[in-house]
Write a protein that binds this DNA or RNA. Sequence first.
DNA 1: CTGAAAGCGCTAACAA
DNA 2: TTGTTAGCGCTTTCAG
Lengths: 355, 355
Amino acid sequence: MAKARATIADVAREAGVSKGLVSFALNDRPGVSAHTRDRILAVAKDLGWSPSVRARSLSSDRAFALGVVIARNPEILSSDPFFPALIAGIETALAPVGQALVLSMVGDADAETASYRQLAAHGRVDGVIITDLRLNDPRLALVEELGLAAVTLGRPDIPSPFPSVNLDDAPGIRDAVRHLADLGHVRIAHVAGPATMLHGARRREAFDAALRELGLDAGPDGCLVIETDFSAADGARATRELLALPERPTAIVYSNDPMAIAGMGVAQRDGLRVPEDLSVTGFDDSDVGRHINPSLTTVSTAAQVWGEAAATALLRVVSGEQIDHIELSPALLVVRESTGPRPGTTTRPPEPGTT
Amino acid sequence: MAKARATIADVAREAGVSKGLVSFALNDRPGVSAHTRDRILAVAKDLGWSPSVRARSLSSDRAFALGVVIARNPEILSSDPFFPALIAGIETALAPVGQALVLSMVGDADAETASYRQLAAHGRVDGVIITDLRLNDPRLALVEELGLAAVTLGRPDIPSPFPSVNLDDAPGIRDAVRHLADLGHVRIAHVAGPATMLHGARRREAFDAALRELGLDAGPDGCLVIETDFSAADGARATRELLALPERPTAIVYSNDPMAIAGMGVAQRDGLRVPEDLSVTGFDDSDVGRHINPSLTTVSTAAQVWGEAAATALLRVVSGEQIDHIELSPALLVVRESTGPRPGTTTRPPEPGTT
DNA sequence: CTGAAAGCGCTAACAA
DNA sequence: TTGTTAGCGCTTTCAG
């Protein structure tokens, strides 16, 4: 059997000092002479000592782990490129410092609450990264009540006790709308995410603002904006509704890539060519979007960078630092083939962007 | 500040018994009279006591958590619907029993090894679910050496100390090939995953076997089979190669959905219609595949069920049970619109499957 | 600067 | 049956 791991007691004995001193030396804290410290470190290395996270957890009351609770239907999640990239980014920040990521995926709001509670009650994590902010998000109060540290991905719409790590969606949407307007489009529709989700709402606001700025509008009763649950299926449904309109839009700005791809499918079934008859933009810059035909004009969001920044920030919060809101560079429009001049226009199509 | 949580010491005092007895009662183990046990439980509930996972971890030498290490490029991962579903399934099994999932996402083999080592050295998890098995997978020996419990997702090609939870890919591929043969196709190509990945290899074997069984072959030098890294980009590349062949295939069996979708894009760019000029099948039944035009004939793999089964099995292993290999119902072909009769044939197209 | 010792909250071997 | 007690490995206070 594997021989028992070395403990600080072993190190202490071997180095001829006390456990306490070893602890001080190992965490390089003041109160140990340089000479003694070196000897202790040498012995520790010699013995192949490595700290026991469990023991440290118990005595220092910290978990050395961060948590993420994802509350989305796995179907929707599956086609969304956002989370894998986000998690990869988080890992990038965590692995080098020996922290772990505890991930929870839940289906509904009750399970979500339960999950945060359990994470806190079990002391599984020191803090959580709050993703997919909602309007008036109840999790802010919940997480605060639970005494967990946290950062939010994006800026909440209500006062928040937590710093936010923000990557602004608005410029991407605005650029998409402008790009379409430049191509001559006037009837531009938006297939939005759930209004209860902050990024869904924000993208929609950005869409409205961009239209206004250009002197356009979203049709009578705003009928050119349709809300969805972010799923490809719902994106297809929304597209059908838009194309059935008496005056159908010539361009549609989708709130994510899967919906845009599904929307293109619907349009093509209707005999419409993309982009000749209908221009389409997505959001998130998924891998498939790059390779379908026509390739998808979309907005790129650097989810991995976002994850890394959020985890890094949260680690600092956990270690007691007071940190400020962090602003990352905003989402960027990537022009490809799915957008073209308004039907009947002679503008030449934009050149496809880089992959 | 939050008042300190109740501990078993509090419960013991309140109930007028010793800590040890409380521990026994709480874990309902023999050696406590029914009456005393009830009183202890009542007091515990009364005090709002809940166990400290940390203390339990330290004294019982268990983590009460399971680990998953995913070693894939986030780009590729992002478009793959498999993992989110898998993880959702794992959660389903873990949450009710108060266990946590520690997830690690790494970019290369070295980081992967380091990740397993760290998980074990830090005692973060009691066992790991080994995904994406490779040929002669070095992780089997590694994980065994580290003393972690484990189950493998799929059956390794080498003797393994761990039970496997298996969901057979072969029938899905075989059915896809047969389906295409039924439609009159003779030159059927395969865009395979990495040969070093077991499911990539197995799907390819299944493809070859199915061809043989039907009296077909994969072209001179097997030129109708092309290996990829599972990315949409590589799927597109493979498709280009296949379509450039002197005698190009009339049907392509892809090893995952993103590649199939990318492949359709390439074909369409070449002026080929799907399925009239080229039939295409995917693998994994992604959400987008259902909504593109034409919708994708694919193979459905119940990743969520797989995850749940694997986690459940691993929990049993961790708790000392001896378990057998587990076989789940195999992958299933879902016929949609991307497959049709061989060009020049008059067979009527299959009706699209259910969504 | 150094060392001893008291926990952190729970488990489990042992004694009564 | 019940209760006692000694750890698990580390942190940290308090004396020296």
